[in-house]
Design a protein around this nucleic acid. Structure first.
Length: 733
DNA sequence: TTAGTATTAATTTTT
DNA sequence: TTAATACTAA
């Protein structure tokens, strides 16, 4: 018996010490799933069931992998040496580089990000196939291809149910061709090729099966078809497969994840020991009751019974506020109060939202008050223009065939290479069987050979680029990533380009410096390793700043984490559920699970915030409270119920007014042209009118203003407070 | 042909 | 608000 096993409860221990063989752990939130998986690894090693190098533990994010590795080190020290803890993508990338001899590309492939994919597709759709990009929209085609790949379809086997599918299949084929020519693999390819490798090369498969005979997968409900296949291929020989998951936390359907893989696993490994973890060590019963109420609306759901080990706790609060700024103000105020009165440190509090854009108002308020916070993801570091530019240069130095990168930066900073020149270069390069990048190198070496093909003007613009590229490419082996970066910044005059003496320019330059600092860490590992990190490590991992404070992150990014205090903001129709998911029942159900995931991150305090108005590109938009809140009426929660739901209030005979303002005809006339009409309106109120507000009581209108179709009134209430409100929310007396 | 400006259209979640 | 696109001047 190992003393660390005593840290686990009986159920958890049973899972950790299940006899070697397939194990399926089905577990609710806060039941210690990841912990169980981690301890299982420790147990396998400590009991001598496995040698470290025979273990492959797969997580979903790099961060989870890092934390698991750290925890194992803490448990076992050096006995974990040689252990592999990785994400699917990173594991596949490594495998493909190692086994490149069996594959139709070289080990020096570069990973294409979404930007590269879009560039390639845009070119194919518009230039090569001359299609209407309004009909074949790049994002739509991209996701169709991605979906096809996740289901294991090649361009040939792409399911064709319509003419459109024919065309998409054609685009898909071209796209693959372009990737191959540029020695690029996209995210899906990493998985797809790994599966293909194991399927088609029995001896490679056998080698990996014997090497990684113990396979463990966290968040199994998030695996897609390809990842599932990979688990099957690697695990089928020794059947030492240990997976943990929770169907109710499946929130990645949109990228091909299929929680039914949990059931599939049971079918494919009928001898699997199935273990349920139902006790919840994280949250109070109040929070769990709310979480269950959110889920139980879904029909024919097996009733999940989450049992808290920690008592009932403070009530869950539903709070309706005016807009996002008011949300932010409430959060700041509440956080400070909890910190002062309850001694809860700010770094055990989090603000969670559906979309990254929602972090803005919160950030601004926290900045204003000088409260520390850390932002996860959001302004994606690697997504910033200056970073993408420099990474593109680095990629080009490493791999001149990388068309997507070249297209990005050939005219950065501007050097008179516009679409025409770029098209001409592409064309002439193709005519000679070269990639545009190779053509540039050749052009720098033998400019005279190109005088016939390109205009003097084009040649003059292209030549210096070719020279730079050549200089970098030659020195790939010799310079460290940071040195290469310095060289690129110097050669391109990038500093002068970004530091345009604006504040924004300085911020951009700061980012460049940050990238350089990162590059320095890859001094020994080289450019290839650095580029791989940039491609695979999302900025979800890069918590910005070392400063401790409130954590701001999307609900997706929060999965697997826990905080003592959680503020969920923007719980309104259109955000959660998101507009894009409202039509599709499956997507809607996923939004619901997303809320469930958010709620179950909270240990002690949970605040559900509902703004009445939302700032959408310009004007204020009125928003309805999220439908998911309806089943959360008191006594489940405390707060602004039932004011939240006017339609229910109306049934009670309160608050009738909103349909009588004469805007119904206006809406009807516009409804035909636009699906979500903005309400046009003339001022309904005048200064001097007496009005009543459900929250602030009676008052006098001081000023009326109509902007962006909304009527905004300034009202002095009886307590002397003067507030700006939307006229919708006051009633004329 | 390109660079710079005016216009307009559209906004999820991530490896 | 931001990004993509159309238009105009050099």
């Amino acid at each position: 018996m190992h003393d660390w096993l005593l840290e686990l409860n009986a159920q958890q221990q049973a899972a950790v010490t299940a006899r070697p063989g397939p194990v399926l752990v089905m577990a609710g939130p806060g039941s210690g799933k990841t912990r169980v998986l981690t301890y299982r690894v420790a147990w396998l090693l400590a009991e001598g069931h496995a040698r470290p190098w025979n273990v492959l533990a797969v997580t979903f994010t790099n961060k989870a992998a890092r934390e698991m590795a750290e925890r194992l080190d803490a448990l076992l020290g050096t006995r974990t040496r040689g252990l592999t803890v990785s994400t699917f993508h990173a594991f596949c990338a490594r495998t493909l580089r190692r086994e490149a001899q069996f594959l139709p590309f070289t080990a020096s492939f570069v990973i294409a990000d979404e930007d590269d994919q879009r560039r390639l597709l845009r070119h194919i759709i518009r230039q090569e196939l001359q299609l209407d990009d309004k009909v074949y929209r790049v994002p739509a085609v991209r996701s169709a291809i991605s979906r096809a790949k996740n289901e294991g379809h090649t361009p040939e086997t792409f399911p064709r149910a319509s003419y459109r599918d024919e065309v998409v299949a054609k685009i898909y084929a071209r796209y693959q061709q372009h990737l191959a020519e540029a020695n690029l693999l996209d995210f899906d390819d990493l998985l797809l090729w790994a599966v293909r490798l194991f399927e088609e090369q029995p001896e490679v498969r056998a080698r990996y099966q014997d090497l990684f005979r113990h396979l463990l997968v966290d968040e199994f409900q998030d695996t897609n078809a390809i990842q599932y296949r990979l688990v099957q291929l690697l695990g089928q020989a020794h059947r030492q497969v240990f997976v943990v998951g929770d169907m109710d936390q499946s929130i990645y359907r949109w990228r091909g994840a299929d929680y039914r893989n949990l059931q599939r696993f049971e079918a494919d490994f009928p001898d699997a020991e199935v273990i349920y973890l139902e006790e919840n060590y994280r949250s109070t019963q109040n929070i769990l009751d709310v979480a269950m109420a959110v889920l139980h609306v879904q029909p024919r759901r097996h009733r999940k019974n989450l049992r808290a080990r920690r008592g009932s706790g403070p009530p869950v609060v539903v709070k309706q506020v005016f807009n996002e700024e008011a949300e932010a103000a409430f959060i700041a105020q509440t956080a400070v109060t909890l910190a002062r009165q309850r001694g809860i440190p700010l770094d055990s509090m989090a603000v969670m939202y559906r979309t990254n854009a929602q972090s803005r108002p919160v950030e601004e308020e926290l900045l204003r008050l000088g409260l520390p916070y850390r932002l996860v993801g959001a302004q994606r570091f690697y997504g910033r223009r200056e970073i993408k530019d420099l990474v593109a240069f680095l990629r080009l130095a490493f791999n001149p065939d990388d068309v997507a990168s070249l297209e990005r930066v050939i005219n950065v900073p501007p050097r008179s290479i516009g679409p025409r020149t770029w098209a001409a270069l592409r064309e002439q390069a193709a005519a000679r069987g070269l990639s545009p990048g190779r053509a540039l190198l050749d052009l720098a070496a033998h400019p005279e050979a190109w005088t016939a093909a390109l205009s003097r003007r084009a040649l003059k613009a292209l030549f210096p680029v070719g020279e730079m590229l050549q200089a970098w490419h030659w020195r790939v082996g010799e310079l460290s990533p940071a040195q290469m970066l310095d060289r690129i910044v110097a050669d391109t005059g990038y500093e002068a380009f970004v530091r345009d003496r604006t504040e924004e320019g300085e911020a951009r330059w700061e980012n460049v410096q940050e990238l350089r600092r990162l590059a320095v860490e890859y001094e020994d590992q080289g450019l290839a390793a650095f580029l791989e990190r940039v491609a695979l490590v999302s900025d979800q991992d890069t918590l910005q700043g070392q400063e401790q404070g409130l954590t701001l992150l999307t609900i997706h990014a929060a999965k697997g984490l826990e905080f003592r205090v959680v503020f969920l903001v923007g719980l309104v129709e259109g955000l959660l559920p998101h507009n894009r998911s409202i039509e599709d029942p499956d997507a809607l159900a996923e939004e619901q699970r997303l809320l469930y995931v958010g709620i179950t991150r909270a240990r002690d305090y949970l605040f559900l915030l509902v703004p009445q108005y939302r700032l959408a590109y310009g004007g204020l938009d009125i928003v309805e409270p999220s439908r998911f809140l309806e089943p959360l009426a008191p006594p489940l929660t405390e707060g602004d119920w039932p004011r939240l739901f006017p339609h229910l209030a109306r049934q009670l005979g309160v608050g009738e007014r909103r349909s009588a303002s004469g805007r119904a005809p206006a809406r009807a006339s516009r409804a035909a042209s636009r699906p979500a009409p903005r309400r046009p309106r003339r001022a309904r109120l005048r200064s001097g009118d007496r009005v009543i507000h459900p929250r602030w009581g009676e008052g006098v209108v001081l000023q009326v203003e109509v902007s962006a179709g909304d009527e905004i009134v300034e009202v002095r209430f009886e307590d002397g407070a003067v507030k700006m409100l939307l006229a919708d929310f006051v009633q004329k007396l």
